[in-house]
C-alpha cells in the first residue's frame, strides 16, 4: 500500500509534467529532433551499409537513389557515414556529459553542503578553469590525452566539469536553507541521508536542464576535436572527420560538407530546444 501510494503519486506527477510539456511547440520539435538523432545513432548503423565500403565507380557522386547523400572522395556512402557518425557523436555527447555529472555532482554537493574549507578551494579551482573557453580547454586536454574516442570523452568530460560543479553547488546552497532540510535535521537524519534524499532530488531539475545543454556542446566539441585531428581518427566516421575531408572538395561536392554540418546543427538545436522546454516545465517557480 505504501509503495503503491508513492508510485501512484509519482506517476501522477510525471503525467502532469508531460501534459505541460506537450502543449509547447518548440520543445516538442526539439524532442522530435533528439529522438530522431538517437534513432539514427542506434538503428542507423544496422540499416545502412558498411561505412568503409568503397564504390570506385562513384567517387564524389552527388545524391542519387543508390547513394542518398552522395559519396565522398573514396566513393564511400555519405549516408552510411552520417549514421555511424551519429553513433560517435551520441557516444561522445552522452558519455562525456555522464562523466562530468558523475564526478561533478558529488563534488558540488559536498562543497555546497559543508562549505567550511572545501568550498572556497573547489570554487577557486572552478573559477580558474572556467577562465579558459570550453573548447580551448578541451583542445588542450585532448592534446595531452591523445587522439581517440576515449580521449575525446575524457577531454570533453573534464572540460564540462567546472560548470557542473558550479551549478550543483549553487543549487545546494539554495536548497540547504529550506525549512524541509531543517526539519530533516530535527528528525535526527544524518548528513548522507539529507544530501541524498533531500538536497540532491531538489537540485535535479537544473541539472537535467544542464545535461541537455552539455550534450550538444559536447557534440560540437567532438566534431571540433575530430576536425582538428585531435579526436576520432579516420577511417572511423565522425561528423567532424567528414567535415575535414569535405573541406577539400567544397566546390566540387558541397553536399559532403552540408550533410554533417546540417546534422550537427539539427542535433544541437534539438537538445537546446528540449532543454528550454524542460527548464520551463521543471522550474518550480514557473507554477505547477
Amino acid at each position: 500500500m505504501t509503495e503503491h501510494a508513492v508510485a501512484a503519486g509519482r506517476a501522477a506527477r510525471r503525467r502532469r509534467l508531460w501534459r505541460r510539456f506537450r502543449r509547447r511547440p518548440m520543445p516538442m520539435a526539439g524532442l522530435v529532433l533528439v529522438v530522431g538523432f538517437v534513432l539514427l545513432a542506434l538503428a542507423g548503423p544496422l540499416v545502412v551499409g558498411d561505412p568503409a565500403a568503397q564504390d570506385y565507380l562513384a567517387t564524389l557522386a552527388p545524391p542519387s537513389p543508390a547513394h542518398l547523400m552522395g559519396t565522398d572522395d573514396l566513393g564511400r556512402d555519405a549516408f552510411a557515414r552520417i549514421a555511424h557518425g551519429a553513433q560517435v557523436s551520441l557516444q561522445a555527447g552522452v558519455l562525456s556529459t555522464l562523466l562530468a555529472m558523475a564526478v561533478g555532482i558529488p563534488i558540488g554537493l559536498v562543497a555546497g553542503f559543508y562549505r567550511r574549507w572545501l568550498d572556497p578551494v573547489v570554487m577557486r579551482l572552478v573559477d580558474v578553469t572556467l577562465a579558459f573557453p570550453f573548447l580551448v580547454f578541451a583542445v588542450g586536454l585532448a592534446a595531452i590525452i591523445g587522439p581517440s574516442l576515449k580521449g575525446v570523452v575524457l577531454a570533453l568530460g573534464f572540460a564540462q566539469l567546472p560548470a557542473v560543479i558550479r551549478i550543483t553547488r549553487g543549487e545546494v546552497l539554495a536548497v540547504r536553507e529550506m525549512d524541509y532540510v531543517a526539519a530533516a535535521v530535527a528528525d535526527g537524519a544524518g548528513d548522507g541521508h539529507i544530501i541524498l534524499r533531500y538536497v540532491l532530488p531538489n537540485c535535479a531539475s537544473p541539472l537535467i536542464v544542464q545535461a541537455t545543454v552539455a550534450i550538444p556542446t559536447a557534440i560540437i566539441g567532438e566534431s571540433t576535436l575530430s576536425f582538428l585531428g585531435l579526436g576520432v581518427q579516420p577511417p572511423t566516421p565522425s561528423w567532424g572527420v567528414m567535415l575535414t575531408t569535405a573541406q577539400q572538395y567544397l566546390s566540387d561536392a558541397p553536399w559532403l560538407a552540408i550533410w554533417p554540418g546540417l546534422m550537427i546543427a539539427l542535433a544541437t538545436l534539438g537538445f537546446n530546444l528540449l532543454g528550454d522546454g524542460l527548464r520551463d516545465v521543471l522550474d518550480p517557480r514557473s507554477g505547477r
Binding site: 501510494a5 503519486g9 509519482r10 529550506m178 524541509y180 531543517a182 532530488p201
Partner: peptide
C-alpha cells in the same frame, strides 16, 4: 518550503 517537494505526504 517546510515540506520536501519530492516526497509524498506519507513519506
Amino acid at each position: 518550503s517546510s515540506l520536501n517537494p519530492r516526497f509524498t505526504i506519507e513519506q
